[in-house]
Design a protein around this nucleic acid. Sequence first.
DNA 1: TATCCTAGAGAACGATAGTTCTCAGCGCAA
DNA 2: TTGCGCTGAGAACTATCGTTCTCTAGGATA
Lengths: 191, 191
Amino acid sequence: MSGPDDAARIAVLDAADRLFYGKGVQAVGMDELRSEAGISLKRIYALFSSKDEILRQVLTRRNEEWTRRVLAHASTATTPRDKLLSVYDFLEEWFREDDFRGCAFINSFGELGSVDPEVASFARHHKESFQRYLAEVAKTSGAPDYLAPQLALLAEGAQTTAAISGTADAAAQARAAAATLIDAALAATAA
Amino acid sequence: MSGPDDAARIAVLDAADRLFYGKGVQAVGMDELRSEAGISLKRIYALFSSKDEILRQVLTRRNEEWTRRVLAHASTATTPRDKLLSVYDFLEEWFREDDFRGCAFINSFGELGSVDPEVASFARHHKESFQRYLAEVAKTSGAPDYLAPQLALLAEGAQTTAAISGTADAAAQARAAAATLIDAALAATAA
DNA sequence: TATCCTAGAGAACGATAGTTCTCAGCGCAA
DNA sequence: TTGCGCTGAGAACTATCGTTCTCTAGGATA
């Protein structure tokens, strides 16, 4: 099941994720990726057809990891309201990490979205799946349909704001705003 | 005051703005810029010291234009509340433009922010000046200080969401959320 | 008219990218 | 021991980039 190929594949993807996320895709050369991964170029090209293919797999993994962390935080909450708010707790934790540099999908979209339709598609699917998740949880809370997109906007805004400002403040601001919006939406439904 | 140099400078900056915004900075070569502007490379390099310098001036103009449009929409509103909401009307108008591709500063930050500190600085200043503007207007409305950053998050989120989804829906969603947050904040103050 | 200055078109240059190729060295089978 | 096949390091190749240089032509001036 797992051989030396898998270990090498993972080493390349780990290194590519670090470098692409940290410096931008185009700013990282294959030689640098080779050094960081400790895998020869020949072997890298035996495992992946191109740099673009590596990027695709990196983005796929990022999406899975992101979803995993969102769900992990949600699992500690009991009410739908707390599940929704736990998203912003996850954001706060993420923003405080040393290597935080914004959302990889937004960054990739800004860098390559207009030139590589596949990157644009990855970003779209990532954001859509997050919106679907919020819509599901919001539905169980009994809130009207308009709530989930509003909460998504706060999360998106917090990510770009945290990245550009270099601070984690946006997470708490987004959380407070989300609480207000959730309560207003639930009150509107109850009425 | 204005000579052939100014006309050429403006032609280069107009072309660079279109191309950089539409395709990304690194995806546009100087030859392509030369063709689009109709100005020879020699003349371009007589007017600008480098491609980076052109990008700096493009971003400076974008910031001014953005501010101008925000203020223009605000001037049609009478109450502070409507002035705040007019931001999202501006966003809706912007999102519907054919060449809309998200916020140029967010895109540039994603592409070059980690490699070119000056680009990161431009993005930071652009976002800060917008936040200051929101804070000023919010203050005249009597709302607590926490309102303006919340409204900024909605605007930021709307921009990235509209860019990635390719629709203008986010503007109206952000506007509705902003109205809820404003009213909640004003009610909290009145109480 | 002869000369000089300017300016444009695009070739040239040096750097760097992604990708492929060469070649030397190692392990293993017979 | 001998030969074979795989692997890794990195040179080579091709393309493209930002920037500079060359060369030509045209217009103004004396």
